[in-house]
Design a protein around this nucleic acid. Sequence first.
RNA 1: GUGGCUGUAGCUCAGUUGGUUAGAGCAUCAGAUUGUGGUUCUGAGGGUCGCCGGUUCGAACCCGGUUAGCCACCCCA
Length: 455
Amino acid sequence: MSKPSLPQGTRDFGPDIVRKRAYIIDSIKKVFELYGFEPLETPAMENLDTLMGKYGEEGDKLIFKILNNGLSDPKNIDKAKAAFENVLAGKNDKNLTERALKYDLTIPFARYVAMNHGQLTFPFKRYQVQPVWRADRPQKGRYREFYQCDADVVGSTSLINEVELAGIYDKVFAQLNIPVEIKLNNRKILAALAECCGGSEKMTDITVAIDKLDKIGIEKVQEELRQRGLNEQQVDIITQYLKIEGTNTEKLDRIKTIFGASTTGAKGIEELEYILGYPSSLSGKNELVVDLTLARGLNYYTGAIFEVKAKHVTIGSIGGGGRYDDLTGLFGVPGIPGVGISFGVDRIYDVLEELKLFPEQVQSGTKVLFFNLGDAESKKAFELMQQLRAKSVSCELYHEQAKFDKQFKYADRKHIAYAAMIGSRELENGTCNVRNLATGEQKVLFFSELVDHPF
RNA sequence: GUGGCUGUAGCUCAGUUGGUUAGAGCAUCAGAUUGUGGUUCUGAGGGUCGCCGGUUCGAACCCGGUUAGCCACCCCA
């Protein structure tokens, strides 16, 4: 027997971690529900053609493919061998693999909407929290299996959706006590910038480069722009654009003078102003900040784009999203626009850990541990425990008679708040010693009082 | 896919220019302690030094290969 191990880039989540993650995910789900979003789950695997070609050339390589069953069946062997040649040549072949693990939540959602658009009520607002898989090489903060947590509204071009999504970000992070900056920009403004710099075909090059700004700095961005074929004058325009500073209104005024003439640019500015000018749904704890340098790597965004950064920590973005024009066109159902956001659960976890913001009670499951101090004693304890459970107090009885030391240690390790001790003397008196394990404070309660004790 | 670093006890890691029987801390178990924990003290168990080969009188240590993990790049969450 070889040592058991995990596949590269995957993780087990122990009890403590599951509890903490559930705290994050439950908070997010509750807010989604509060805003009228409905849950959706899709299978772990999709047909390979549903996924292929949707994530670019790089993305295709990172899709986890599933080998077909029954390849060794004599009647399939020749086909399988021929298929393998195809695969070696870098192509896919259905005779070898026709299914794959899902790569993100957006494409399966698009597939679902395309399949069910006749039945759905639009605008359709869905949220989805599920694992996805990537055949990437893992590194810090990057895994081969990880959770995505998405909410999208499809079938509506109304900017009220953007306002609502910003509100969701604000509400979630206010609840989790993480101060954040919700950054907002608009792809149409970036499109206008591209127009000024030699045409819209440069749009992707420009966004990919300036998306890296906060990571690599202005000089490297300029270098990358040159590498991507922009001339000095164009790099100069972009540099000036990236240096625009001030309040939201100041920034908007500034770009109005630059891009006001461009219809696309004017539209983008108008959209930004609409979102910012809408009666605020924000808690007041977080700010909505126009960040003209925000670009987002994904090039299917066409309107508003979002990104959320936690204040006071160096960790990168903990959420992002934006508007796209045509979600389901790839699946033969054109004309369904949408806007969505995503939460980075793993990074939010790291932020909460770093800022020590996980509430104490997240840690514990069992509230009361009944000590086992003998046969007759434990039977009485068992009865009392059942009464407490009937009142929804989670509790357990130590599994065997043991020294106090052991039972205390067990309680400690499971972060149990109270120990209920019934020994021979207590059994005789009809009492129970209830000890608060954090404070050491101990009370004597009659059996009848225990059930109503506020744990 | 490309590059760098690391594999020694359950965990975190020492291990001298290659030299007797490979160590520590934490954890576990037992005792000090037969009714009150997180402290302390004593003791015990626990190892294919990732794996295969080579050099050598002798390898955890040097060399080659292999495998796994981590980190960075590309890309992304």
